[in-house]
Design a protein around this nucleic acid. Structure first.
Lengths: 148, 148
DNA sequence: ATTAACTTGTACGAAATCGTACTAATGGAG
DNA sequence: CTCCATTAGTACGATTTCGTACAAGTTAAT
């Protein structure tokens, strides 16, 4: 392979990785101590989609092993942000429900993150971000397909 | 803040995070067991820039804590990919040097990753990637500046 | 109805990441 | 020269991530 091509793709994925790391760090700086991006993301997911899902369904939505999701959900349950109940339709499995505290956690997190988004938007135009999202979604889909 | 705007930025960083995760997993699938993206990246860095750097300089280049870099470098040293020698200019510090095995590791890793890059390129045009890199670099720079 | 194959969640252990606290060395103020 | 603040690296412990192995429940084939 052409070395310039290889360098290009490496640079691309390198920039992606750095942005992911920086944005994650910036977000977690706004969360209460001990809570991480996955904690916030799961709560957000339960609000955006719906709660009452099984741990495995949530793990699949985030493309993480189910053991990882067990750990994340335990952290949320210990903080009282979700309640884990048996699944009446399947004795093997469980369902995950938001609590009021969980919704409050999400509201407060968003409120404290908003200024960072504003700061970012002031320096990088929203329209350019809007234009990038579909490209990134395409790239994600290609990588996803290549996973087999 | 406008909810649509917030959702847009969340989607953007979410896509970035997923791509970072997928590309990292794809790369590590090609590395010998026990070796990770940071291992490969450090070796690559030492080749692209120069070897003989101090651990702290490398940690700063990757924006990770120095304890993390100590751990990564120990892994590389145990595999015989780098040699860690005292720094003749500063008794507190050390210097990190590539070995022949380290260079071979890098060459082989690249050889086994190339087909994945080709597969990706076949589904997503190189020119679009080329156009995205500067945008991502800008975004990275903005996030970096906001870190204070 | 019984059995075998599969699914869901978890316990456990390994490895990566990172904060805190420490040691050793450096360098500047006096 | 002496002292003290600073710097480089590491030991240690906590947490996250994830693979393996397992227990409990479900499903499908006979």
């Amino acid at each position: 392979m052409n070395n310039e091509t290889r360098t290009l793709f490496f640079s691309f994925f390198n920039e992606i990785g750095i942005i992911a790391q920086l944005s994650r760090t910036a977000l977690e700086a706004r969360l209460p101590k001990g809570l991480t991006l996955p904690h916030f993301s799961v709560i957000n997911h339960l609000i955006r989609v719906r709660d009452g899902q099984t741990p495995l369904a949530i793990a699949r939505a985030f493309q993480v092993p189910k053991t990882t999701m067990t750990h994340t959900l335990n952290g949320l349950a210990e903080n009282g942000f979700v309640e884990i109940r048996p699944n009446p339709e399947d004795g093997r499995s469980k369902t995950v429900w938001l609590t009021d505290a969980g919704r409050r956690f999400r509201d407060e997190a968003i409120r404290s993150i908003d200024p960072d988004i504003e700061a970012f938007r002031a320096r990088y135009p929203e329209d350019k971000i809007r234009a990038l999202v579909p490209d990134l979604a395409d790239i994600r889909a290609v990588l996803d397909a290549n996973r087999d």
